[in-house]
């Protein structure tokens, strides 16, 4: 009964492909964060004032707050279906490290929810009157920041598996952790907007991403295993 073992990168690619396939079968869920992001950023000028100077000054903050909340929206369902239907149990029982399978799932989640936010950012930034010179920084910062948010949020989502008020708990757990991302991301965008070098904010986001990639998989694996108890 011996079996040919599949390599870890191949299995991670398999998980990634599965997540993408499932996401494209549930278009409404896939579009939800982007639609939310676009709606919130569009509503601000309507609610406040179409005054360009005002929009320009609040633009980075509005974009980042909307991005953080949109990321949170997408997190709630990250593991829930797979936990409910017993898929995560099967992953835990495979001979592959659960932490790495979950990391592949989070990577797919970021590609499907974080990357579209970063891609929409120039349009949103332009609409809020941000200068063209700042749009590249906004995109880069959002790409890095949304990756960190996906990883941190995944830990929250894993820890709240099986709890009845999971979404409330998730927000309470993840929002404080998201504050540095919000601050560094908005600051980098603000600096770029004023013609200053945004490097410090971007480097801090990159450092946060590296730390999250190193530590989060272990936490994810442990949190999901605990949820089986």
């Amino acid at each position: 009964m011996s079996t040919a073992v599949t390599s870890l990168p191949a299995v991670m690619a398999l998980v990634f492909a599965r997540e993408c396939r499932l996401a494209f079968r549930r278009w409404s869920q896939l579009a939800q964060p982007v639609v939310f992001f676009l709606m919130v950023t569009t509503l601000f000028p309507l609610a406040l004032s179409p005054e360009p100077a005002l929009l320009r000054s609040i633009g980075p903050g509005v974009v980042w707050v909307a991005a953080v909340l949109a990321s949170l929206l997408a997190l709630e369902s990250l593991f829930k279906t797979d936990w409910d239907d017993g898929t995560l149990e099967q992953w835990a029982l495979s001979d592959q490290p659960l932490a790495m399978l979950l990391l592949a799932k989070v990577a797919a989640h970021w590609c499907l929810s974080g990357v579209p936010l970063a891609l929409c950012a120039p349009v949103v930034g332009y609409a809020l009157g941000l200068p063209m010179s700042a749009l590249g920084t906004l995109m880069g910062a959002l790409a890095l920041g949304s990756a960190v948010l996906s990883l941190l949020g995944a830990v929250g989502a894993a820890l709240t598996l099986g709890s009845r008020r999971g979404s409330v708990l998730l927000a309470l757990m993840v929002l404080p952790l998201a504050m540095p991302v919000l601050i560094f991301g908005a600051r980098a965008t603000d600096l770029a907007m004023n013609g200053d070098a945004p490097d410090a904010g971007l480097w801090l986001l990159a450092a946060g991403l590296i730390a999250a990639i190193s530590l989060v998989p272990l936490a994810l694996g442990a949190a999901v295993r605990v949820s089986f108890e």
Partner: peptide
């Protein structure tokens, strides 16, 4: 993981995948 195959109360099948896709994915993990 190599030694044991487990069938619990939950089937370990994703509702949006076909039986073949579910079975293929679960097997390819191993």
């Amino acid at each position: 993981g190599r030694r044991v195959s487990f069938l619990g109360h939950e089937q370990g099948l994703h509702a949006d995948l076909t039986p073949a896709e579910n079975a293929m994915f679960a097997t390819q993990l191993r």
